Amino acid sequence: MGKTALLIVDMVKDFTDPDGLVFYPQNREILPKIKRVLDKCREKDVLVVYLQHCNRKGKFDRKAAAMRPNCIEGSGGEEIDPMLPVEESDYVIKKRRYSGFFATDLDLVLRENDVKNVIIVGTKTNCCIRATVTDAFYLDYEGYVISDCVATNSETVNRVHLEDIDKYLGHVIDSETLFKMLDEGTL
């Protein structure tokens, strides 16, 4: 079956903290749910990978220039939310685009750890979650998006993208189903 990894996508202070540059309340709401998933995955020895949106300070980036400034290197806004503590065995992979796979070493890290299944939680279902799941699909990983552990700033947009992901790119399950699968050893 292969091993499983938990990918925590962009749960950084600029997105999760009320003082963050691109904060929205939905991210605050999913943090405790993601923490429960993180704890369960640690209990089951699932590899943990944080994907950290991080824009370079003082360097031009055409994509970043078209958006509100956020997650600037060294600002503190790019730091992982403290509710989700990073342990020494975890990976933290910086990214500058929506997909955690694009121009990063995520695929290499997963392959080096014999990962076949990826559990995906975090923010911006319509951008970063969807792009990461799409690339996971193209790279032949079995993707599991945890529906109560992802968010964007519109519930309608969130729901539409989860429906598409479930139909075309992977599996959309809730955290209770995930916990059952982990306990049964089916994931």
Rank of each mutant, 00 (worst) to 15 (best):
I93D: 02
E163A: 08
F102K: 01
T134V: 07
T177K: 12
I93M: 04
K44W: 07
T177R: 13
N126W: 02
M1K: 12
V133L: 06
V22M: 09
N70L: 07
I72Y: 01
L47D: 00
P82I: 02
V37C: 03
G74Y: 08
P69Q: 00
N153A: 11
D61P: 04
K40W: 12
T123L: 02
E88T: 09
L162R: 09
L84A: 08
M83H: 05
F137D: 10
V133S: 01
T104R: 14
Y91D: 07
G185I: 00
S99F: 01
K63W: 12
N158A: 08
I146S: 04
L47F: 15
D183Y: 12
L162Y: 08
T132Q: 05
G20C: 07
R97N: 13
E184V: 04
G122Y: 02
K95H: 06
I93A: 09
G76S: 07
K124A: 14
H53E: 15
C41S: 12
G2Q: 10
L51Y: 04
V48W: 05
Y168E: 10
C128V: 04
T16H: 08
F102M: 09
N153D: 11
D107F: 01
L178P: 09
A5D: 01
I72C: 03
M181V: 13
V118S: 01
K3R: 12
K180A: 14
K94S: 06
R28I: 02
V49G: 06
V121F: 00
E87R: 11
R42A: 08
K13N: 14
C41F: 03
E78L: 00
E142D: 15
A65R: 07
A103N: 12
I146G: 03
P18E: 04
D183Q: 14
V118L: 01
E79W: 07
T104Y: 13
E29I: 11
G74C: 01
S89G: 13
S89C: 12
L38V: 05
V9I: 15
D90F: 04
A151N: 03
F179I: 02
D183S: 12
R36V: 10
V49R: 03
V133F: 05
D166H: 15
K180M: 14
